[in-house]
Design a protein around this nucleic acid. Structure first.
Lengths: 191, 191
DNA sequence: TTCATTTGATAACAAATGTTATCGTCGGCT
DNA sequence: AGCCGACGATAACATTTGTTATCAAATGAA
């Protein structure tokens, strides 16, 4: 599964095999919790199949912050980097096949590839990119109306609309399920 | 001015002097624009005195995303790192004394201190911390009511209340000036 | 000082969004 | 097949927040 990334890494075959051997395969049902709120994140996940929802509990209400699909890597970044309790829950939406590597193993690998600054930098860049992405979503809460956020979602991540139950989408857009229904109906009748 | 940070850096005196010499002093009036929207950020700023507001234009309305005060360093991080046009404007609120270093000079220094991984890591950590901070503010848009955000501000950054005109605060909290007045008045009369 | 500009408060009304309740549909399970 | 629970639509009403207008107080410049 990881072999599709093989050509992206300047490693010789034996190193590649050694490193990828640290990954573990995990097959889970829908609604499986991969990381609890308050738990310290010690695993980095890569999704082979299925999808993951990241959310936190706010006064009894789900607040979804992200969705991840096939071939994306997922972690509660701040918890993972700084060994602090995770503010968010990570949970599968569909039955999923997940690969994970422990933070320990990953740290060892990162230590070992220090002589390949290119790789190290790339990893750091990946973390920044993920963070910027995340931020982009939050900024849209300030800039855009819920209707606009919904339209953006259709435009940028149509997958989400097709695979994710609507009440999760509402919580991702920051509106009630009732209001999301309203938005959809308004858009429909405006045509 | 930078000497207060002297002991934080494991550099010998001559290197310290060489590096700090790349900083330039700038004295500016209130409402001076340090970075335009769309401009590529090429300077990292450190505030000796005064304060800076970071904002962007959204449909003709100011949307303030951050305030910075004495001894804080400021840049449009994503623009600075990736050489892309800055989505935000950086503008002084009060007459200010600012030190800045060009990205070129900073990159050279970062290149040179590669052998001191500790320093390099610290710099990267600083960027992450700033990003996490930034994120925290955005998350509070989703979690908290405007009233709660205002209370948080009082709690966490009372300076802002004292030094920043109220309409900037309203735009920082994401509400109209009228509504911020309402919030203040409600809090006052609830007592 | 005097005048104009900025800043902040308040009222009245409008628009957006949440809440609660009800109903219909669909899919999985026994 | 029949049942149950999850999901989504809609209506009615409540609450929050924005908008526009007006006024008062504070500030700054001539």
């Amino acid at each position: 599964m990881l072999d599709q990334f093989r050509n992206k890494f300047p490693l010789n075959d034996s190193k590649w095999i050694e490193y990828t051997n640290h990954f573990n395969r995990l097959e889970v049902a829908a609604k499986t919790i991969l990381l609890e709120e308050g738990e310290i994140s010690k695993k980095l996940f890569i999704i082979e199949e299925g999808c993951i929802r990241v959310w936190f509990n706010n006064n009894g209400k789900d607040l979804t912050t992200q969705f991840f699909f096939e071939n994306q890597s997922v972690a509660s970044i701040e918890s993972f980097m700084k060994k602090i309790p995770s503010p968010v829950v990570m949970e599968t939406i569909e039955p999923s096949v997940i690969w994970w590597i422990s933070k320990n193993d990953l740290d060892k690998i990162l230590e070992e590839i220090k002589e390949i600054p290119e790789l190290r930098d790339r990893f750091i860049n990946m973390l920044f990119e993920r963070t910027f992405d995340y931020m982009k979503h939050f900024v849209s809460f300030i800039k855009d109306s819920p209707t606009q956020r919904y339209l953006n979602l259709i435009e940028e991540r149509p997958q989400v609309l097709q695979r994710v139950p609507q009440h999760y989408i509402a919580s991702y857009l920051g509106v009630s399920t009732v209001h999301l229904s309203r938005i959809k109906s308004q858009l429909l009748h405006a045509k």
